[in-house]
Design a protein around this nucleic acid. Structure first.
Lengths: 183, 183
DNA sequence: ACCTGAACACCGTTCAAGT
DNA sequence: ACCTGAACACCGTTCAAGT
């Protein structure tokens, strides 16, 4: 005799994302997720393959949201700022995506592609099609590195972190723009 | 009646660093470390406060080694390459230091200071004392971001990753150098 | 067809008992 | 003074039994 469903994949992923931000990755346990969605831990295995799979779904949902955020940006500065703003809203999820992943990268290829599209588009405009990929990697590397260090309180030598962001953003965009037609 | 020591903090940290690289952070368990140093897990607590403390010691040993490596570099390109070479030798440890840390940053302030000294020195030479800190943060952010993405197989859109490194390195150094006296 | 309690293997950690 | 087995709390995961 069928039982009415008490939860769903969406509810589970949503609860997991909440827990990740409020309790850290270590606090994202199957039991905690189960409690949030009103079910016992073993029931989660009807919807997700296990904790690793659930973490992957969280990463992919995060990248999808990041992609749609970045797609709306019209200038390089706005794309870079989009990264940073997003990382401040979802610091743990952002680092999950970028950080020491589970084995084969924590999210599927297509999710990365979607999140990269905006940077590549902008990079092509700045540096020309020939150097679009190199330029995109330079921009992304700087933003990801800056944010990673910032989120881990790595900028602890004083000074104004916002000023450092603007300084770097200006320098990076400037140097990429100078690429057009040479290098 | 005293018993002769069967291990030491150094041996424990060394075993932990090995395990971190060969088995990943999850494989760095107290039992695995104990087995490597020829002791039972509870005995480790005579030398380290617990797993978190041991991981911290690993991070600090890693930063100390990175610092001495970078201190030998004489140009900005060599400092940046020093980061990357080091990260290829100790990928897991490098990401442990930079990545989503345990709570209050995974290593003590002084260890970060030591590892930052070389970049700040070089940045001062390139950009002038006034912008040394901003420039150092730009250089470090780019290198850390590039390496983080590289280690997590994030550069999966084809193209030559080494070429992208050299492209970005050139651009970054160039733009920082142009800073002198203006901005 | 979904949910659950009970069980298992595996963690980190504590501690009384050994030498 | 250091080491150990036993124990505890807490994970992820499996599965037979319920409805």
């Amino acid at each position: 005799m069928p039982t009415p469903d008490k939860t769903s994949v969406d509810a589970i992923v949503s609860a997991a994302r909440d827990l990740l931000e409020t309790e850290s990755l270590a606090g994202l346990t199957m039991q905690a997720v189960a409690r949030r969605v009103g079910v016992r831990a073993p029931s989660l295995y009807k919807r997700v393959e296990g904790r690793d799979h659930l973490v992957r779904l969280v990463a992919e949902a995060t990248l999808t949201e990041l992609a749609s955020r970045l797609d709306a940006a019209t200038t390089a500065a706005k794309v870079l700022d989009g990264y940073r703003t997003f990382s401040h809203e979802y610091p743990a999820a952002f680092q999950l995506c970028m950080g020491q992943g589970s084995s084969p990268s924590v999210a599927g290829h297509s999710y990365w592609e979607a999140a990269s599209a905006a940077v590549i588009r902008i990079s092509g405009e700045l540096a020309g099609a020939e150097h679009a990929l190199d330029a995109a990697r330079t921009l992304t590397a700087w933003a990801v590195g800056f944010i990673t260090i910032e989120l881990n309180s790595g900028f602890n030598l004083g000074g104004d972190v916002d000023r450092a962001w603007k300084f770097g953003r200006t320098k990076i965009i400037e140097s990429i723009t100078l690429t057009r037609g040479r290098y």
